[in-house]
């Protein structure tokens, strides 16, 4: 058995004295692990950091084996990501979320989304927006997609302003106003709005996606929201605070 693909490093664990077991989010084969010989060496350890995109060749005698992986760098981002608090917490959180996917189950859309997100993740303003979009995409991939295209009450697609915490469907301003305190605000950047989101918009979006991730994905599996998410949000607030110099 042999395949060649691109993959984003999700995690790495030492194996013996010099090897490492690396877990990649591959373009065509989903989450896939393999043993990298010499993975603990100085050269390879720098490549095998979460967030880096690698070219990987995987070989095994039979498909169910862990297999050996040979990797080469494609895009090395981990250094840039680990320099900032939002980058470190963000990539830790993203890789933790991706471990919710079953192994070797292809999710090419999610790979492309993750690759694009990580490319733009160094700027805090972009990171908050992209993380919210990623959570929406992940919910959809896991079968709990939100319907943000039309109003759950009227069926129309104008002036969508809220999301129902029960159904995950959008609600128009007219229909939702009387229940505004029970609904999540729907930031326009999640439905194609062109105005760059403010910190408040991002917090609204992440509060909403966080609710659905917790209640529909994590809690049924007996999991809690990863600590890194709170760390990411705190860093985002700090780095985007007036005078912090974030753009």
């Amino acid at each position: 058995m042999e395949w060649t693909d691109e993959g984003i490093v999700l995690g790495v664990r030492r194996h013996g004295e010099s090897g490492a077991i690396v877990e990649l989010m591959t373009r065509a084969r989903g989450r896939h692990a393999g043993l990298v010989r010499g993975g603990a060496s100085r050269r390879l350890a720098a490549l095998l950091q979460p967030g880096n995109t690698l070219h990987a060749v995987w070989r095994a005698r039979i498909e169910s084996q862990l297999g050996l992986m040979v990797v080469e760098p494609v895009t090395l981002r981990s250094d840039g990501l680990m320099r900032s608090a939002h980058g470190s917490f963000g990539v830790t959180y993203l890789t933790t979320l991706l471990r919710l996917l079953p192994e070797r189950d292809p999710h090419p859309g999610l790979f492309a989304t993750l690759d694009a997100i990580l490319d733009a993740f160094e700027a805090p303003a972009a990171a908050g927006e992209l993380l919210a979009r990623f959570e929406v995409a992940l919910l959809a991939e896991l079968g709990f997609g939100l319907d943000l295209t039309r109003c759950a009450a009227t069926g129309g697609n104008n002036d969508l302003a809220f999301v129902s915490p029960k159904s995950g469907r959008a609600v128009s301003r007219a229909a939702g106003d009387p229940y505004a305190d029970k609904l999540f605000p729907l930031p326009t950047f999640l439905i194609g709005g062109i105005v760059p989101p403010s910190l408040a918009d991002m917090e609204d979006a992440l509060r909403m996606t966080g609710h659905f991730l917790a209640t529909r994905v994590l809690e049924p599996r007996g999991l809690s929201v990863p600590d890194a998410r709170a760390g990411f949000l705190a860093a985002l607030r700090r780095e985007m605070a007036p005078g912090a110099g974030a753009r």
Binding site: A45, Q49, P50, G51, S78, D79, L81, M82, R83, A85, S88, F89, V91, T92, A228, G231, A234, A235
Partner: peptide, 15 residues
């Protein structure tokens, strides 16, 4: 260390 896990820990302690 200069790994994502170690630097995430560093940011956590800084907080």
């Amino acid at each position: 260390g200069a790994t994502v896990d170690a630097q995430t820990t560093a940011h956590y302690i800084t907080d």
